[in-house]
Design a binder for these strands. Sequence first.
DNA 1: GCTGTCTAGTCTTATTTTAGAACCAGATTG
DNA 2: CAATCTGGTTCTAAAATAAGACTAGACAGC
Lengths: 150, 150
Amino acid sequence: MKRTGFSEAVCPVARALDAIGDWWSLLIVRDAFDGLRRFGDFQKNLGIAKGMLSTRLRKLVELDVLELVPASDGSAYQEYALTRRGRGLFPVIVGLRQWGEAHLYARGEAHSDLVDQAGQPVGQLVLPSRAGRPLTWSDTKVRKAGARKR
Amino acid sequence: MKRTGFSEAVCPVARALDAIGDWWSLLIVRDAFDGLRRFGDFQKNLGIAKGMLSTRLRKLVELDVLELVPASDGSAYQEYALTRRGRGLFPVIVGLRQWGEAHLYARGEAHSDLVDQAGQPVGQLVLPSRAGRPLTWSDTKVRKAGARKR
DNA sequence: GCTGTCTAGTCTTATTTTAGAACCAGATTG
DNA sequence: CAATCTGGTTCTAAAATAAGACTAGACAGC
């Protein structure tokens, strides 16, 4: 049966997952954040089937997450570069990374690390209130679409 | 062929996606954050096939993202509750939500909103440096597993 | 400027996953 | 105690995925 879609959902989480919530798309975006730009680089690094990669890259370009630009080395080839929309996925990737680090590794098991330019580990993602106070899950709620303010 | 897995990856993003990076798991977790706890509630709200839901819930329980607890209404049924590990996914869901809100809706199109208990819209997710300064993508880099500090 | 190799794909096929419906056992309700 | 609700399992057809064979144009060496 046709895979269920959420591109019309009123919930932004569902719509986001519809766009980039499959096995490969976020890994491609992660690699793009790591500086990969060429078809062959993605393919080698991910071990993804070329057909899959081709389909995914096309979809990500359609979505304006990636864009095709002339190769930076002056050759006639093209490269895939993150757009502003693509760079907007940075907190999502970081969120997944921090959750994975915290919960999916045995004590002492090696994993890659996100550091700032000085090599210092970064802090945890913070959701601030409008006033700047950090919020946790229990401090928030979802207001349904169209609900009147009161 | 068997779907590629990343449960052994050294990259926490890959490992996280291996665990919860499919179409349904994050939507189930989102619904759990919205307060849903029963099989039938998830099934009705998501419109997911019961077989899928059954498989996904079992996996999420195995992963210790959800846990089975006695129903809060005193009946003999059970409910699915978020564990500490599951609650740790809050920033991921918020990140997807904020990206979706910013990029996937036409101007003026209705969508649900994340607000604090006072009904105030929340701010954007922030990644702070250890010193508390907000970081963007270009301020960070990934240090490969096992790379020596210097 | 010819030949061989690299790049970036497309096409084909076997296997797995998903969607949807039918079915079922135990709990709850009237 | 009969009907219905809850929380599943099982079955099938359609769609997605993995993996490899194939290809056209770019490029490098000579």
